[in-house]
């Protein structure tokens, strides 16, 4: 899975560079996020602006990371395209994950 990481205003940002998050990258996604979460001590942003398609296996990977992080997690998802956001609404996971419109708003939330 292709991705980039960066730090802005002290906040770790993981930008996924895949167009499609599906079964073929789900395991990789899970491992990358887990590693990154550990490094960022649970507080980080995942930028999904490049992702046009996300299936239920990729969603499962995200959920498993969230479970590992537990209730204290400060994982923010941002820049979700409508198609991707609709997958979160469909599964009601938009009530579980912290989803914000932009990287800026995620940084603000984490900085605040």
């Amino acid at each position: 899975m292709r991705y980039e990481n960066s730090i802005t205003s002290g906040v770790s940002i993981l930008t996924i560079k895949e167009q499609a998050l599906d079964a073929s990258v789900a395991q990789d996604l899970k491992e990358t996020l887990a590693t990154y979460a550990q490094r960022a001590k649970g507080a980080f942003v995942v930028d999904l602006s490049h992702v046009e398609f996300l299936d239920s296996t990729a969603l499962g990977a995200l959920v498993s990371v969230l479970k590992v992080l537990g209730g204290a997690s400060e994982l923010y998802l941002c820049n979700l395209r409508p198609q991707v956001l609709s997958v979160f609404s469909l599964t009601r996971l938009d009530r579980v994950f912290k989803i914000v419109p932009t990287v800026g708003s995620a940084i603000q939330a984490l900085s605040g």
């Binding site: 299936d55 239920s56 296996t57 969603l59 499962g60 959920v63 198609q83 609709s86 997958v87 469909l90 599964t91 009601r92 996971l93 009530r95 579980v96 912290k98």
Partner: peptide
């Protein structure tokens, strides 16, 4: 449009600790 089928319900709690059934592992 995308249409999900099959899968299972995972019994999550939402960010406010309410019951939040999630439809997971569907095929599209």
């Amino acid at each position: 449009v995308l249409v999900p089928l099959y899968g299972r319900i995972e019994h999550f709690k939402d960010r406010w600790e309410g019951y939040n059934p999630s439809w997971m592992d569907w095929q599209v």
